[in-house]
Amino acid sequence: MTPEQLRAVVNATADSVEQRYVFADLGASTAAILRANSRDGRYAGCTGPEDLAEQVTADLHDATRDLHLRLLFHEGGAVGEDDPVAQEAWWAEQARRTAGGIRRVERRGGNVGVIEIGPVLGDPERAGRAIGAALSLVADADALVLDVRGCCGGSPDGVVLLLSHLFGPEPVRLSDIESRADGTRQVWTVPVPAHRRFGAGKPVVVVVGPETFSGGEALAFDLKEQGRAVVVGRPTRGGAHPRVGLVVHPLLELTVPVARSVSLFTGRDWEGVGVQPDVLVPAGDDAFAAALEALRASGSPPSPR
């Protein structure tokens, strides 16, 4: 990359962070850091887009500690929200190759249903049939394990759709979403067919780990907050800010957090701290076995907190 191209990418990144980052003051100060670094020649030694992405991402993290705020290198070409046709095609192919994020559905002894989710839970338009089919297969199980240890993200609407199968027919208000552009938006469960709903009184355990991130964390967080599930495993990574993708170079995508989750019970979220398990499983121990043990020990769902 030429010096002019390096400056253009950094300036475009700084402008987008300043204009769209969920916290306006922090976005402005972070943008100022990037511009100062550019003037001081910090990025002059970057040999190409991949090097630049690594250096800028490190600076973004130093300034904000926000794991969703990144400059990503895409060897095959970056796709962002400014090209909705290409973005739609990319996510549709992702959903096709991963069954919308439904990795495994299983019945185990004792009529325990298991759904493993990863790497990314898709949105209802592309993954809705897969999510509905998975829940249909466990709807009459006596207990359910949701394994999100390998889930590193997901569509907020896809998370809501899956969660909607785990409550009764009446709408349930989940964590709100707060953004600079739209203020506070309430999030509620959506109607699902009765034959796909896993009964509200039956026990649910969510298995989490250090690779669980973003949408996977949202699923565990809301179920824990609502007292609908016991969370078992190890603390998650701590990324609670929904983001958008912006192309700032043909091979570079800037992901900018534009909103945050807000707990109905505490007003906080899991950003930077992760979702903390109810049952902590030491590293190296079998978290799935601990989840099954938690089911055996549970007589009824825990109370909301």
Rank of each mutant, 00 (worst) to 15 (best):
E4A: 15
E4M: 11
A12L: 14
A14H: 03
Q19I: 05
Y21Q: 12
V22K: 12
F23E: 15
F23K: 08
G27L: 09
A32Q: 12
R39W: 02
Y43V: 00
G48E: 10
D51F: 06
A53Q: 06
A53P: 07
D59W: 08
H68Q: 14
R70T: 14
R70I: 05
R70K: 15
F73E: 04
F73V: 07
H74K: 10
D83P: 07
A86P: 10
A86N: 09
E88C: 11
E93A: 13
T98F: 01
I102M: 06
R103E: 15
G113D: 07
E116P: 05
G118R: 03
L121R: 01
R126G: 03
R129T: 10
R129Q: 14
I131G: 05
A133F: 07
V138M: 06
D140A: 13
D142H: 13
L144R: 07
D147Q: 10
G150W: 04
C152Q: 12
G153M: 06
D157M: 10
L161K: 11
H165E: 07
L166A: 11
L166F: 11
L166K: 04
F167G: 13
G168E: 13
G168D: 14
R173H: 13
S175A: 15
S175V: 00
E178S: 12
E178H: 11
E178T: 12
S179G: 14
S179L: 09
T189A: 13
R196F: 02
R196S: 06
R197S: 15
F198H: 08
F198P: 08
G199D: 14
G201V: 03
G201P: 03
V204T: 13
V207L: 14
V207Y: 09
T212N: 00
G215C: 01
G215P: 00
E225W: 02
E225N: 11
R228Y: 09
V231R: 00
V231Y: 00
V232N: 03
R234A: 11
G238H: 02
G238M: 03
G238P: 05
H241E: 09
R243W: 10
L246V: 15
H249T: 02
H249A: 11
L251H: 12
L251Y: 04
A259W: 06
R260C: 02
D269W: 03
D269G: 07
W270D: 01
E271M: 08
Q276A: 13
Q276L: 12
P277G: 01
D278M: 06
P282Q: 12
S298G: 10
S298M: 15
